[in-house]
């Protein structure tokens, strides 16, 4: 049985210092067993400027078992699968401790972005590239950040405006944007398809 009282406390604590840490955790539904974490790409790395979403599933034994975390945003990193987003990080496996929290675990994931460990890879292809051709690795990682981890710099109102200019009614544009989490390209797709 998940300790939901603790999860609630964690969410409160996390939202209190979201300004300082940049780390967000939000439930996907109201049962708190599935959440989405958000971490900013660390400054001075190829992930800088990106915002990375992480799917979190809490096992029944949480916090005595580690949360399951997986990148939902595609990322190019030796310890993260470029296909599935699976993360190779000891504290999410055998080195978990119940004194860790979703926030501290996400901070560790963020630290992993800064300090790849190609000797213990999750994605062998990325790790090989990292070791043999570091410059190309940096280029690819940066390109993936630009392509997959950067939401448009436009604010919501500007996005609505853009869609209205394309000829969609404002209310429809707004609800389409909301339903896809603010991504204007997805919103446009949605508007066009139905």
């Amino acid at each position: 049985m998940i300790d939901f009282a603790r999860v609630q406390k964690e969410l409160q604590e996390c939202s209190r210092d979201v300004e300082a840490s940049g780390i967000k955790v939000a439930p996907k539904s109201d049962n708190l067993g599935r959440l989405t974490g958000t971490i900013p790409g660390p400054v001075g790395t190829p992930y800088e400027g990106g915002t990375f979403q992480i799917d979190i599933t809490l096992p029944d034994g949480y916090p005595f078992e580690p949360p399951k975390m997986q990148f939902a945003t595609k990322v190019w990193h030796p310890n993260i699968s470029s296909q599935s987003g699976a993360i190779c990080l000891d504290i999410l496996k055998d080195q978990w401790s119940p004194a860790l929290t979703l926030k501290t675990a996400l901070l560790s994931v963020q630290a992993l972005l800064s300090t790849p460990e190609p000797g213990d890879p999750q994605d062998a292809v990325v790790a090989q590239q990292y070791l043999r051709d570091y410059q190309t690795f940096v280029g690819t990682a940066r390109y993936w950040t630009e392509t997959f981890a950067k939401t448009s710099s436009l604010g919501v109102e500007e996005k609505v405006q853009k869609l209205v200019e394309m000829g969609f009614p404002e209310a429809l544009a707004r609800s389409a944007l909301e339903s896809v989490g603010g991504d204007e390209n997805l919103a446009l797709e949605k508007l066009c398809s139905g």
Partner: peptide, 12 residues
Amino acid sequence: DNKDGECAICLE
């Protein structure tokens, strides 16, 4: 004198 803090497991 030592009641500051919490149980690090349940966070109570």
